[in-house]
Design a protein around this nucleic acid. Structure first.
Lengths: 213, 213, 213, 213
DNA sequence: CATGAATGAGATTTCATTCAT
DNA sequence: TATGAATGAAATCTCATTCAT
């Protein structure tokens, strides 16, 4: 990873709390610790139980009272949004890494899609949020990161199309469609075990088709 | 198509209420009318509100009391299951028709997948039920039809593989994965308009990939 | 049984529908048949399920529609009242028979209390009605018969006190208290098997106590 | 009575919440206050409306929301169970006191039965719960106390039989049968005023009958 | 600030009773 | 007249969110 990437990553990924939220840099030490514990606990319990997880469960898992959870995330949607944001920050990092690596950019993109999928693999909540009909508010805080993800993707797509690895008509929309679909099949216990097969089909559909575009 | 097949299709698709349900052939005229209204209303309101739709809303939309809804569908899951069942009956019919038509069976299959998708296109209810995380009971009544769908699909896949239209490693599981994914992206208002593009990608991914299986 | 008794029994017991009810002597043959079937079915299903039996169940057991049940018994309470009435008619008959028999009247009374209990033994509904807090309406139609039962009881008590078999301070109220209590313990699945023991205690408590009244 | 026994009695009777319930000693002051208010309100409203009392009514009577009632008693059965438990704790105390007193143990037992009855006298709720057909779960939390009551009763019975005060064939089951019966007649507004008479009959039936066992 | 008790608007489901067929 | 479909007022229980301690 280059320095440039690291800088961007740090600024965008790590701290990055929503402005209206007491996660500002000057947060008290214990508050920051609590916030971290809550997010960690939320990730685990949402991953297990999906979006029907209750706020009380998150609080219990974090070892704090519900009130504390609400102090940091005034809404269940905002808490889920934070989890989503963090996932997309990881995704963004993966794509940026792919962009910096040597080798065919198309292949790099396809490989990082698989890596992204691996991030979802055990995270029921993210699967459900990505696939399902959630309240729009969940996406609010992740939106800027999603836009960055799209930007990096576009670069990679363009480069991959030049080398002929990716189909000429491919756009970021394709990635959204397919990854949304993947998340959905992953969220289904029956289909989840076959997710790598699904990934293969997705990958193949993004290469130039045998019969031409 | 043979007469026998047609008969079976008709018999299975049109009436086809679950055995334990008051939709038996000899239902009273008004009851049958109400049942139809409830299903229609359910489809509409589920499309609007998603799976968090309430039974009261269905009843109100159908212009009947809740009790009436419950008389016809003793459980919310069973009502959702009925919506699913009806869609799958249509799908089954489409696939059977494809099987009987002349021309390359692989192409027939791919075309009928598109036709199936057209069935979902405006049916947010089914999209959400298919893509979302539902209690398993929702699938109960549709299960036999789903199995028949799989059976017909398998025939078409085998034939399509012989003529080289479909990839050699394709199975019905692929269809499930991809169609579940399609339903999911369709259910997202942002992605829905691009569903034909999603369908194209799906179709392409089921043909033999350029680089071989 | 003497003729006199038979006459009374016939008049009081068999026909005897409440005045506001279409069970009047001039009921149509099929209506009378239906009424009988309903009562019979109600007795069985109430005996099994107790007072939480539903009207639909009664109708189903009788092989008629709910509407028909309601034609004969405008209220669940009235249907239960009819069952109660019939039980008390049997009780009345038993007590009258006791009165006519030879031998010590006190012993006759105590024996018929046991016989009455045998009538309840398998009839959960009557047990519950007698012991539990039911809507007063249930007792309405049985009330006159209950009064007759009391009258006969009083005769037997007086006679039994003369021969010294029954305690001198005994009244019909004692019977009510004790039989209500018996019904209650019978209604409890744990206590029910011991009901004959309960009966023994009851019987003993109605004889002159060892230490005098 | 030894000091130890007294201590245990106190410990068991006063606080004594079920272990799985938020009534643990370290409950917040307001929570404990609310819990007490709920129990008190429940007793009143159950006394009035019987076991068809609704949780909403209890909540309203206690001046709290339904949610609060459910926080303390996750089930209606558990709430009723608590009422029962508290009564049986009083009963247990009465019997233990009887065991420690001087004088004939049989007489002590019979007297404490009357005292127990006095506890029910104005508590329609307990009367109905004891006499009526309740779901078995209602008895769950009181079960251990009931067993202790039985144990103490057995001691007293054995001692009372030795002195000839109690009938030779008496068992705890007799007490259950008779007290269940008493509760039932008490619950009936018509019979309630005569409950002391009922108690007399019960007492007499537990002494050796004149004609021998 | 943290806590977790309290809130109360629903959510699903039941069932005595009514009424169109 | 008989039928059984329709009714809808409860009843129990849940859970995101608030607020007193």
């Amino acid at each position: 990873m280059t320095d440039a990437t690291t800088e961007i990553t740090d600024a965008t990924v790590s701290g990055a709390p929503p402005d209206d939220c007491p996660a500002a840099p000057k947060m008290r030490a214990d508050a920051r610790r609590n916030r971290a514990r809550i997010i960690e606990a939320a990730r685990e319990v949402f991953a297990k139980t999906g979006s029907l997880t209750q706020m009380d469960d998150v609080a219990a898992a974090a070892g704090v009272g519900v009130g504390t959870v609400y102090r940091h995330f005034p809404t269940k949607d905002q808490l889920m949004g934070e989890l989503l944001l963090q996932k997309f920050e990881v995704i963004l990092r993966l794509l940026r890494e792919a962009r910096e690596l040597d080798g065919d950019p198309g292949e790099r993109l396809l490989e990082s899609l698989t890596r992204c999928a691996e991030e979802f693999q055990h995270d029921t909540a993210t699967q459900q949020i990505m696939s399902g009909p959630q309240s729009a508010a969940v996406w609010d805080s992740a939106a800027p990161t999603v836009r960055e993800v799209d930007a990096v993707s576009e670069e990679l797509i363009a480069a991959g199309q030049k080398t002929g690895t990716l189909r000429a008509d491919m756009t970021v929309m394709d990635i959204r469609l397919l990854m949304c679909g993947l998340a959905s099949s992953m969220a289904d216990p029956d289909l989840n075990p076959a997710w790598r097969r699904h990934m293969t089909l997705i990958t193949d559909s993004l290469r130039p088709p045998a019969r031409g575009v």
